[in-house]
Simulated assay, not measured.
Amino acid sequence: MRIYVPLTPQEIEHDEISPRLVHAVTPDLSRVFPREGEEELEYVAFLAAADDSLRALTTVPRRVVAVADVPTPMVELPAVDEEILESGVHMAEPLSWDRVESIHIDEAEAEAVIRDAIAGDERAFEESAEIDLLWYDILERAALIAALTS
């Protein structure tokens, strides 16, 4: 199953990614958007992860999403009464970086909008959904860490 993992810039440095709510194309998401193809559904899950990343930010105002393919038993569907998006699944165990295929991050020019969204500006939050995150191969992780900590 392909999962979209919301992260903070600081978490890129961690040895592994801790269990958390992540996003994926789930049966519930497919039911909500029955006319959408797989690519569009994956984009919805990706955007949900980017929104969760934004909500977790405290210092560096740049959203981060890791994309990984994991075996289905590594994720659990949420309980029926949980109030989470239809794309939400629980990552039940830590994720090693060797399972991650790519890392997506806001470019520096997006920081003002993201900072305003973090501060509670609803217009900025909505505007952040229109900002494309940059794509990085997992092999570029060390360079990203260096760039974000300098």
Rank of each mutant, 00 (worst) to 15 (best):
Glu42His: 08
Ala129Cys: 06
Ala68Phe: 00
Ala146Leu: 03
Arg115Ser: 12
Glu39Trp: 00
Val65Glu: 11
Ile105Ala: 03
Val60Gln: 12
Thr8Ile: 06
Ser87Trp: 00
Val113Asn: 04
Pro6Val: 15
Ala79Trp: 01
Ala117Gly: 10
Glu127Ile: 05
Glu83Phe: 11
Glu109Val: 13
Tyr136Pro: 04
Glu126Gln: 11
Pro19Glu: 12
Leu148Pro: 15
Ile103Trp: 02
Glu111Ile: 03
His23Pro: 05
Phe125Gln: 12
Leu29Lys: 00
Met91Tyr: 00
Met74Trp: 04
Met1Arg: 10
Ala112Gln: 07
Leu29Asn: 01
Ser128Trp: 07
Pro94Ser: 13
Ala112Glu: 11
Val100Ser: 07
Glu36Asn: 03
Gly88Cys: 13
Ala79Gln: 06
Pro61Thr: 05
Val60Met: 15
Leu148Glu: 06
Val89Lys: 06
Pro27Arg: 06
Ala143Val: 11
Val100Ala: 11
Glu76Asn: 11
Val22Thr: 05
Ala146Gly: 00
Ala45Glu: 08
Pro6Ile: 14
Gln10Gly: 12
Trp135Cys: 13
Val25Trp: 00
Asp15Pro: 03
Arg31Ser: 13
Arg20Asn: 10
Ser102Trp: 01
Glu111Lys: 00
Ser102Arg: 07
Arg31Gln: 11
Ala110Gln: 02
Trp135Asn: 09
Phe125Ser: 10
Glu109Trp: 02
Ala143Thr: 14
His14Ile: 02
Ile131Lys: 04
Glu16Asn: 08
Ile12Phe: 01
Ala146Phe: 01
Val113Met: 11
His14Cys: 06
Asp28Asn: 10
Leu21Lys: 07
Thr58Tyr: 06
Tyr43Met: 11
Thr149Lys: 10
Ile131Cys: 08
Glu13Asp: 07
Trp135His: 12
Glu109Ser: 12
Ala129Lys: 06
Thr72Cys: 05
Pro19Met: 08
Phe33His: 04
Pro6Phe: 11
Asp15Val: 08
Ile3Cys: 02
Glu140Tyr: 03
Ile12Ala: 05
Arg141Lys: 12
Met91Ser: 01
Ile118Thr: 13
Ser128Phe: 08
Val25Thr: 15
Glu107Ile: 06
Leu85Ile: 07
Arg115Asp: 14
Ala129His: 04
Ser150Cys: 09
Trp135Lys: 10
Arg62Cys: 12
Glu126Leu: 14
Ile17Val: 14
Met74Thr: 08
Leu47His: 08
Val25Gln: 05
Glu130Lys: 03
Tyr43Pro: 01
Asp81Met: 01
Asp52Thr: 14
Asp69His: 05
Val25Ile: 13
Ile138Thr: 15
Ile103Phe: 01
Ala142Phe: 03
Glu76Ser: 13
Asp137Glu: 15
Glu40Gln: 09
Ala143Cys: 09
Leu47Arg: 13
Val70Tyr: 03
Glu83Trp: 02
Tyr43Lys: 14
Thr149His: 09
Glu126Asn: 06
Ala50Val: 13
Ile17Gly: 00
Pro71Val: 12
Thr59Asp: 15
Ile105Met: 07
Pro34Met: 02
Asp132Tyr: 03
Pro94Arg: 07
Pro71Lys: 08
Glu126Ile: 13
Val80Leu: 09
Leu95Phe: 02
Leu148Trp: 05
Pro27Tyr: 02
Leu95Lys: 01
Ser87Cys: 07
Glu11His: 05
Phe33Thr: 01
Glu126Cys: 02
Arg115Cys: 10
Val44Phe: 07
